[in-house]
Amino acid sequence: MVRSRSPVSRLLSGLSAADRSAVSQALNLVDDQRPKERAAALELLDRLEQRDDAGGAVRVGITGAPGAGKSSLLNALVETLREQERTIGIIAVDPSSQQSGGALLGDRMRIGFSARESGVFLRSMAARDRLGGLADATYASVAILSAVFDLVFIETVGVGQSECDVARLVDSLIFVAQPGAGDTLQFMKAGILELPDIFVVNKADFGATAERARNELIAGLGMASERDGEGWQAPVILTSARDESGIKELAEAIDAHRGWLETSGELPVRRARGRLGFVRDALVRRYGEYGLDHIGGGAALEARVAEASEYSTFRLVHELGSEIEEALRRP
């Protein structure tokens, strides 16, 4: 007897087998706005999130100003991680043109194709209509790659909104600063130094300038260190993609941070916080604070999100959204 399986089941077994075509199709599906595809995407994400129990993939965000050398850094990091035979999924986010809606992606060939074939998967995505922020599909894409690969990286350009957005998606956030770019001061002002778990001063071949940037960062972190009550002291690592110095140290820092998240019990806390943040943000973006008030406001939302643990984050946005729409329709 031939049992006909739903497309979602087929995708799920493809993902279990780490089939790259399935990964690609799943990423296409969660980006698809048509109603039928949205429904299928929700089903897929529900079933994936249920499987993602104790922690799953290590989710890492990499942010920093344009030109800080994120791509070459990621490339070197990927090489080191491949030597440890770990598989890697990458989502690279580039800004969309506000004028046309189009976007120029890619230019990441520094992440070589030979690496890609053997256990590295790269999908570039446009940030779409959000200034500096991330498209909803990015969150869903992380969920998909997390089901398949050992580590998932999200690389985003820019400063500000994207850090906050990325922080919700990942377990560890790496911030890449460029020596001499005056980054540090800017970030202290923006309050961004509170978010990253690991700091990288890239292009350490700048010598004294790089050392100075590192010291500035350490000083800046000292000022912002109230959060260290959590017990994690964010390291500042000097790296150079050119001679690959500091890359091993960075890989170790990622693992150390993950280890700390697990032993301290911080991992589920962070993920829950990320989930709430994402749901809230998605709803507010669509319906405004006004809309949110119609289901009882922020506090009520928090309780609802905590309760609905059987729902995937995306289902939750969908359900709560329908609820708000209905409430808004009532006279």
Partner: peptide, 24 residues
């Protein structure tokens, strides 16, 4: 208004096919 993946010069046909698949 299209989203464009352009990875520069000197790719093999195999790399182009792989990129087309992975990038959707």
């Amino acid at each position: 208004g299209m989203e464009v993946v352009y990875d520069g010069i000197r790719l093999t046909p195999g790399e182009i096919v792989q990129s087309a698949r992975d990038e959707g």
